[in-house]
């Protein structure tokens, strides 16, 4: 049963890593728009790169 004393802190550490990840994703605006990304993936990539259209994810 001693393994439990190792697993409990481990699970808490993992949980806090997930929480930190979640907080980061919210703060960087990944949850601001729940609709568009679903449609954006349906759009084909451009056949030939056009100048000035790098649509890098820009968040404020």
């Amino acid at each position: 049963m001693n393994i439990v004393f190792f697993l409990i802190p481990l699970s808490l550490i993992l949980a806090s890593i997930f929480v930190i990840g979640f907080v980061y994703s919210v703060k960087s605006g990944q949850y601001d728009d729940m609709d568009t990304p679903a449609y954006r993936v349906l759009l084909d990539d451009e056949k030939e790169p056009l100048t000035g259209t790098e649509s890098t994810p820009k968040v404020d």
Binding site: T36, Y39, L50, G52, S55, P57, K58
Partner: peptide, 17 residues
């Protein structure tokens, strides 16, 4: 695709909702 229509656009991101 706004960049192909007008000069000087780096990026344009739309929130459709």
């Amino acid at each position: 695709q706004l960049g192909t229509l007008v000069e000087g656009v780096v990026s344009s991101r739309l929130n459709i909702g």
